[in-house]
Amino acid sequence: MVENSSEKNDERMAHAIETTDLRKEFDGLVAVNDLSLTIGRGVLYGLIGPNGSGKTTVIRMLVGILNQTSGSATVLGERIPISENKPRIGYMPQEMGIYTDLTVHDNLELFSDLYSIGREKFRSRQQALLKMIDLEGRKDSLVSQLSGGMKHRVSLACALVHDPELIFLDEPTVGVDPELRTGFWEYFEELKRQGKTIVMTTHYMDEAQRCDIVGMMRNGRLIGEGSPSELMRRADADSLESAFLAYSREGGA
């Protein structure tokens, strides 16, 4: 498939993610409503919207935790549910998803083992990541003994241990103090410079402002998409927040 040279596939390969009429219902309740979007490679894409707008469900379908009800999507060229491309993606769930009864090192080692990255590479990755999240001295601490912010950092490191090219971050900065948030953003930008694609959900508008492209979601639909400045200009708004409200009115009509 990768070698396929048809025009459509070339285009698909150029995108990190492409969804077509992606739909998810839970017991008849529509969580994601025929969503079609494309996310280019190397882009920092922010999905914003209120709680229950379907952001997390979209990500959970893309990383292979949930099956869609209908529609389709490709992730790095592979149709969901993905299997082959799993080693190429990283995922940080909203609930952090780390083992609190293990040490920081044990968590990192477990995920590096699951991605079969090898001893040598793990050692260098661990060192680099611990330095990045500023927890070099806490390698052997149990995660349960760390502060909330530290746990967040460990969770992020676990998503990055295998050096993925596409990274899904579900509300990575919820409950994180402002100082740490700044640190996180510096790192996201560093990842982007390395050519990684990042898809994150957030409901902080100031964070959305820093994304390359923002997708605004409401009731499972994409109500607006574009760069923050474009979105504001089109809605004739002075902030993303008021732009979001404008699109909501439009989309709800």
């Binding site: 959970r60 935790i65 769930p93 909203q94 998803g97 083992y99």
Partner: peptide, 14 residues
């Protein structure tokens, strides 16, 4: 399930 570690396992190649 509650801590979403299972989600992480499922999204990994395991």
């Amino acid at each position: 399930r509650r801590n979403a570690t299972l989600d992480r396992l499922v999204s990994s190649p395991a």
